[in-house]
Simulated assay, not measured.
Amino acid sequence: MEYYAIVHNDFDGTASAAVYARAVGSLPKTVFFTEPNKLHTLLRSLELRGVYNIMIADLGINANTFNDIVKELRRLINQGAKIEWFDHHVWKDEWKEELKKIGVNLYHDTSTCGAGVIYKYRNPNDNFSRKLASADCSVDIWLHDDPMGEKLRRIVENNKDYSWKNELIKTFFNGILWNDAFDKILEETMSKELEGYKKVMKSYRLLEINGYKVVIAVRWKGPPDISYASQFLMTRTGASVFVSANGKSISFRSREIDVRQFAVRLGGGGHPLAAGAQLKVPLLYRFLNKIGIKSPMLNWVAKVVQNVITDVGFIKYQDKKSISFY
């Protein structure tokens, strides 16, 4: 079957593409990696060129781009496209109804990760897809219940080039979860992470809001990535919420608080324990941060975070049982 795959630019997107490929028995003609806030732009530029099957995975909806997404999907469907969309982020019921009405075959399940949705509904008897989805969900939705997830996430995120993720999709498609080359990458990545924690320690501020500690960091260069840095800083400071900003976006993490509420207030979204939004820091503060003067940007972000959290309040995450892989 010839098809295009449109997936999130992360481990879950990569795993989703591989699990789907195994489900249909073939690799995609082209994989498009993107972000939720850029999906409408990608769809606008997409031409079928004789390929009439499209899968979209691990891409949630941003309210401000939904109408554009519907418009472009309707265009593609009118040209003969068949579209399957797999996602696990929080959606409004009206979004699901609208997409189904125009002909999108939608699989939506918030109990698992993107790859988990595809495994559950398209290929539940494939043992390899079960293992890959288990590892992926462990880190993507902060379950941290499968050690392979911590290892594979580092492998996938080791190289930001799309060509690397394409190679990994082929590797997973062929039923290879780990190989000797991954051992070397993991060792090198872990060494860089240990050095990187020194940078992280110079780039954060601790707030106390309504009795909860919130640790805020401005992004650093290189490893560790946001997932591991957040765990490190929350453990070190006793914080309930971790926030990071890079000048253009903001991310929230927690083990106990529904941080998606904060991201939604800023126009974004995500998972209850891992979410984000666009947040453009003033140019002057970004420039100062780039040359090593971090306080102005930290102060500005801290004020935004304080206001958002004060308005929304702390909402305890009500755990939902995830799909069992064992």
Results as ranks from 00 to 15, higher is better:
Leu42Tyr: 05
Lys120Ala: 05
Val156Tyr: 02
Met201Asp: 15
Arg22Thr: 00
Asp183Lys: 13
Ala263Asp: 00
Ser322Glu: 12
Val200Trp: 09
Arg153Leu: 08
Ala21Asp: 10
Lys101His: 14
Val301His: 13
Gly222Glu: 09
Asp145Arg: 08
Thr110Ala: 04
Lys29His: 06
Lys100Arg: 15
Lys96Ser: 14
Lys170Thr: 13
Lys303Phe: 08
Gly276Tyr: 11
Thr112His: 11
Ala217Phe: 05
Arg49Gly: 00
Arg205Leu: 13
Ala302Met: 07
Leu298Gln: 12
Leu206Val: 15
Gly149Ile: 13
Val305Lys: 09
Ser138Asn: 04
Met297Asn: 03
Asp161Pro: 00
Glu256Gly: 03
Asp311Pro: 02
Lys101Gly: 05
Tyr326Cys: 00
Arg286Ala: 05
Thr34Tyr: 08
Pro272Asp: 00
Phe262Asn: 03
Val305Arg: 07
Leu73Met: 11
Ala275Arg: 01
Leu283His: 11
Pro282Ser: 01
Asp126Leu: 00
Phe66Lys: 07
Ile291Phe: 01
Thr112Trp: 14
Pro28Cys: 03
Thr112Ala: 13
Phe32Tyr: 15
Asn105Pro: 09
Val51Glu: 01
Ala274Gln: 11
Leu298Asp: 07
Gly211Trp: 05
Lys202Arg: 14
Phe262Asp: 02
Ile54Pro: 02
Arg75Cys: 01
Gly103Glu: 07
Arg255Gln: 00
Tyr3Asn: 01
Asn289Gln: 15
Phe287His: 12
Glu208His: 05
Glu167Cys: 09
Tyr326Arg: 06
Pro28Met: 06
Leu206Cys: 05
Asp311Arg: 04
Trp164Met: 06
Asn299Leu: 13
Trp300Ile: 01
Glu84Ala: 11
Ala81Pro: 04
Lys202Glu: 15
Asn125Pro: 01
Ser324Arg: 12
Leu177Trp: 12
Ala63His: 13
Lys316Ile: 02
Ala135His: 06
Lys165Pro: 12
Arg122Ser: 12
Phe86Ser: 02
Leu39Gln: 10
Tyr212Gly: 00
Asn37Tyr: 09
Ser240Asn: 02
Pro296Lys: 13
Glu94Lys: 12
Ile323Cys: 02
Thr41Met: 08
His144Trp: 10
Ala63Met: 06
Asp68Pro: 08
Leu42Gln: 03
Val308Gln: 07
Lys38Gly: 04
Ala217Trp: 03
Val104Ile: 15
Ile293Thr: 11
Trp85Glu: 14
Gly116Glu: 05
Met297His: 08
His8Tyr: 07
Ala133Asn: 08
Ile323Pro: 03
Tyr204Lys: 05
Glu157Trp: 10
Asn78Phe: 08
Gln306Ala: 01
Asn210Asp: 15
Ile141Tyr: 03
Leu177Phe: 14
Lys29Asp: 09
Arg22Gln: 00
Gly276Asp: 11
Glu187Asp: 15
Thr30Asn: 06
Tyr326Thr: 10
Leu152Ile: 10
Gly60Leu: 09
Asn37Asp: 10
Asp225Pro: 01
Trp91Met: 14
Ala115Glu: 13
Asp126Thr: 00
Val215Pro: 03
Lys96Leu: 15
Ile185Leu: 07
Leu42Ala: 03
Glu208Val: 06
Val24His: 03
